[in-house]
Design a protein around this nucleic acid. Structure first.
Length: 361
DNA sequence: GATCCGTGGAG
DNA sequence: TCTCCAAGGAT
């Protein structure tokens, strides 16, 4: 294959056809780092508004490092994979303390930061610093698998090594960042997973799968496991004496949806009714007794590796104040207070199902 | 090295 | 409604 011709053709296509994203107007390594973190496992069209809000609120390493994690999570609300926000925040504090508030250009130093792995280090080095570093993301994996007509399963670690080597060969030593972006852009808009748009592809002349008519069979991937389903209950626990006041709890920082706030509850155990499960969970997590009341809403939701049916109930608090047994924190709040807390999608749907807040004034 | 971690768009 | 999967990283 003529690597020089491939690089030139692809980059010329990219320059004429690149989608306009806000991070493509910045040369600031910090801004590029934020965008690359948001783009992990998240489509570019989704990231746009989050990126601009985040940069407006945290325009540099220092403002991010000095912000509270609660503020950072609020800006990340609904973007998913919330550990990314924790890592970004923690890494900013490391940068401020150990790297003069700037991103290091050295690969080892980048990889030492939380949330920066091989892909993100390569993206920063090539796009932000102009170094000849490779990137291998889902797009590039697919593009290479088709360019080379790989029959090997790309989810196998052995194939991973081959793909990184190939990604390194494709680097344009003159314009590594542009070449890497062009590869990813091609995968995102032309070399699509189910239906590659080969008739519009600028590099189909270089593509072995196109030549062999195997592009629809590439890349070869592992079959997915079926994901389990659980029934889950959550409680809107109203204060025994204070009107319009209910309980929210903060999830532990190290688990799923870490640091987000929620209506407390948990999974139903076999043979258990939803109200029974709610009483048990509230006792285990917060050490409180409740009387379960009216059903609020039931909804289905799909996470990455399981699905739930969530059943929310009103409940009346009895007895002792809550304690942090299996939660990071808890608060008595009113509906007007909720916008300052970060909630996951399911709990936002519960909020939307509550009675409208009382009019004040 | 297999598993965990969110949400939304597309078909 | 269901499936796939997306500019991955950590453990």
């Amino acid at each position: 294959m003529n690597l020089v011709a491939l690089r030139q053709t692809l980059q010329r296509w990219f320059e004429a056809n690149a989608r306009d994203f806000p991070w493509r107007h910045s040369n600031d390594p910090y801004a590029i780092w934020v965008s690359e973190t948001m783009l992990q496992q998240t489509q570019a069209s989704t990231v746009g508004p989050y990126y601009e809000r985040f940069l407006a609120r945290f325009p540099n390493v220092a403002t991010l490092a000095q912000a509270s994690l609660a503020d950072v999570l609020k800006m990340w609300e609904n973007l998913g994979y919330y550990r990314r926000a924790q890592n970004l925040h923690a890494a900013a504090q490391v940068l401020l303390r150990e790297h003069d508030g700037r991103l290091p250009q050295d690969e080892k130093a980048l990889l030492a930061l939380p949330g920066i792995g091989r892909y993100t280090a390569g993206a920063l080095r090539s796009i932000a610093f102009g170094q000849p570093a490779a990137v291998l993301d889902g797009n590039v994996r697919r593009v290479i698998a088709r360019l080379d007509d790989l029959s090997a399963n790309i989810d196998e670690p052995a194939t991973e090594k081959t793909l990184w080597q190939r990604a390194a060969e494709l680097i344009d030593p003159e314009t590594p960042g542009r070449m890497n972006e062009a590869l990813m852009e091609l995968g995102a808009v032309i070399c699509l997973p189910p239906k590659p748009q080969c008739h519009r592809c600028p590099v189909s002349d270089f593509c072995l799968a196109y030549e062999h008519h195997t592009q629809y069979e590439r890349p070869v991937r592992k079959a997915r496991r079926r994901i389990p389903h659980f029934d889950v209950v959550a409680g809107v626990v109203w204060h025994a004496t204070r009107p319009h006041t209910f309980l929210i709890a903060q999830r532990p920082l190290d688990g799923m949806l870490g640091g987000l706030w929620e209506f407390p509850g948990g999974k139903l155990q076999p043979g258990e009714s939803a109200p029974q499960a709610l009483q048990r969970e509230l006792q285990e997590e917060l050490g409180i007794e409740v009387e379960v009341g009216a059903h609020v809403i039931s909804l289905d939701h799909a996470y990455t590796h399981f699905r739930i049916s969530l059943h929310a109930y009103r409940a009346r608090h009895r007895g002792d104040e809550p304690r942090c047994l299996q939660v990071a924190d808890w608060r008595w709040v009113q509906q007007a207070d909720l916008p300052s807390f970060a909630f996951a999608r399911t709990d936002q749907r519960i909020i939307a199902a509550l009675d409208p807040p009382p009019l004040t004034e």
